[in-house]
């Protein structure tokens, strides 16, 4: 028996919007720790990892570990029927092939339940060890989204370089080139507007902008984004989900042949 009650139901809608461009089908894993997911895009270049900790739910009951295969577009269709202020409860019984989403309006005058068929999904799960990164950049998520969007109108790839001077995003295309440098800036009114660079050593990596733009669909989940870079590793783009967990994206770099 599984029963997860999330008062801030709109958060689940935002989580779905943050993943469904990258992944079509995924297994949601439910355990005592929380509600989680790991899925790769079809080309195995990018991976999304989600964790919503059990403590973040108003009510969390998960009698035994359960993996539920869902089509994210279908799940999104159902969640879009919930009001933005609705409380969402996810329910499933052991051994059934469906999941129920229950939507309650804040004053309890409307209650809806939507039952969705589950799917068998053969997904590969990658082991991702904790790593030391050469550079970690924290910046406003809206600023990162703006940079990725702007650069993708010029080129297909971005070189992200971190030096003592700041973090530089560069691209080149048929019509020309573009460079955007963000300097460390801690002297802002609000901490979420700061750009903070922790650098062990300079690092420069090339990534496909198409994937980074997909990652920025998570912007409504967090005011800030953390970008962790190391020359030997995929980049990690993390959006913290307040009081609940995170959505992390991993993207393998491009290398010059």
């Amino acid at each position: 028996m599984l029963e997860l009650r999330l008062v801030q139901g709109s958060l689940l809608k935002k989580v779905l919007d943050a993943m469904r461009e990258l992944v079509n089908d995924a297994n949601f894993d439910c355990s005592a720790t929380g509600f989680s997911l790991q899925a790769m895009d079809s080309s195995h270049v990018a991976l999304v990892a989600l964790l919503l900790r059990s403590e973040g739910f108003e009510h969390y009951r998960c009698d035994r570990n359960l993996s539920m295969g869902m089509n994210l577009n279908n799940m999104s269709k159902m969640l879009r029927c919930a009001g933005n202020d609705d409380i969402i409860t996810i329910k499933a019984d052991d051994g059934t092939d469906s999941v129920t989403f229950m939507f309650e309006s804040p004053n309890q005058d409307k209650i809806a339940d939507f039952e969705m068929k589950l799917m068998d999904i053969d997904s590969e799960h990658l082991g991702i060890p904790d790593a030391e990164y050469q550079a970690i950049v924290r910046m406003p998520s809206s600023e990162f989204a703006r940079i990725c969007k702007d650069l993708s109108s010029i080129g297909d790839t971005v070189v992200i370089s971190v030096t003592k001077e700041g973090v530089k995003f560069s691209t080149a295309g048929d019509i020309g080139t573009a460079n955007i440098v963000c300097r460390q800036n801690k002297t802002v009114d609000k901490p979420e507007e700061a750009t903070i660079i922790e650098m062990q050593e300079p690092v420069s990596l090339t990534f496909a902008l198409r994937y980074l733009n997909s990652f920025t669909k998570a912007t409504p989940l967090s005011d800030t984004v953390t970008i962790s870079l190391s020359s030997e590793l995929p980049v990690v783009v993390e959006y913290k989900i307040a009081e609940m967990g995170y959505i992390r994206y991993y993207l393998a770099p491009k290398i010059e042949e």
């Binding site: 080309s43 799960h125 990658l126 030997e232 995929p234 393998a252 770099p253 491009k254 010059e256 042949e257």
Partner: peptide, 14 residues
Amino acid sequence: WDTQLQLQGFYTNA
């Protein structure tokens, strides 16, 4: 030309 690497080149199956 840049070559796109895949995640399996960095991480192994769990």
